Computed example of a mutant assay.
Amino acid sequence: LISRGRLSAVIDFECLGLGDPAVDLIVAWYVLPDGVRDAFRAALPLDDAAWARGRGWALSIALMELSYYRDKDPRMATVARHVVDEVLVDAARTA
């Protein structure tokens, strides 16, 4: 934040999702294949909004990873692309 043309404060969003169970769902797109992900979701006492937030968290992390690792670590970039694909498939199916 700026005050009188100078930096006066910084907002730290690092713990933005603290306490939100949707953050714990990120693993669904990183680790679980599509069919298993459906069973995982069905077993959880979460609503559609929590699932959508989890999907959004997974997508945002994967996009940042892809941007960072694209030229630095091909293996990590491949993982990030896979997660983006999984998120898009899941979003299209549940839309």
Rank of each mutant, 00 (worst) to 15 (best):
L1Y: 13
L1H: 15
I2M: 14
I2L: 13
S3W: 13
S3Y: 11
G5L: 03
G5T: 04
G5F: 03
R6S: 13
R6P: 09
L7I: 11
S8I: 07
S8Y: 05
A9Y: 12
A9L: 11
A9H: 14
V10R: 12
I11Y: 15
F13Q: 11
E14F: 09
C15H: 11
L16K: 09
G17H: 14
G17V: 07
L18V: 00
G19Y: 01
D20G: 09
D20M: 13
P21K: 04
L25H: 01
L25V: 00
L25C: 00
I26D: 05
V27Y: 02
V27W: 01
V27G: 04
V27N: 01
A28Q: 01
W29P: 00
W29A: 00
Y30C: 03
Y30G: 04
Y30K: 04
V31P: 00
V31C: 02
V31L: 04
L32D: 03
L32M: 07
L32W: 04
L32F: 06
P33C: 03
P33A: 02
D34E: 09
G35D: 07
G35F: 01
V36Y: 15
R37P: 07
R37D: 08
R37W: 08
D38E: 15
D38M: 13
D38G: 12
F40M: 08
F40W: 10
L44H: 13
P45I: 05
P45N: 08
P45M: 06
L46A: 10
D47T: 10
D48G: 09
D48Y: 05
A49V: 13
A49K: 13
A50L: 12
A50V: 15
W51C: 13
A52Y: 10
R53N: 14
G54N: 02
G54Y: 00
G54M: 01
R55F: 08
G56R: 11
G56N: 14
W57D: 05
A58Y: 09
S60H: 12
S60R: 14
I61A: 11
I61R: 09
A62R: 01
L63M: 07
M64I: 07
M64H: 10
E65C: 03
E65G: 05
S67T: 12
S67L: 14
Y68T: 13
Y68W: 15
K72C: 05
D73Y: 13
P74H: 03
M76H: 00
A77T: 03
A77G: 02
A80V: 07
A80W: 06
R81W: 02
R81Y: 02
H82A: 04
H82R: 07
H82D: 06
V83Q: 03
V84H: 04
D85K: 06
D85Q: 11
D85I: 02
D85M: 07
E86V: 02
E86M: 08
V87I: 08
L88Q: 06
L88Y: 02
L88E: 06
V89W: 07
D90F: 00
A91H: 14
A92N: 08
R93T: 09
R93E: 09
R93I: 06
T94R: 14
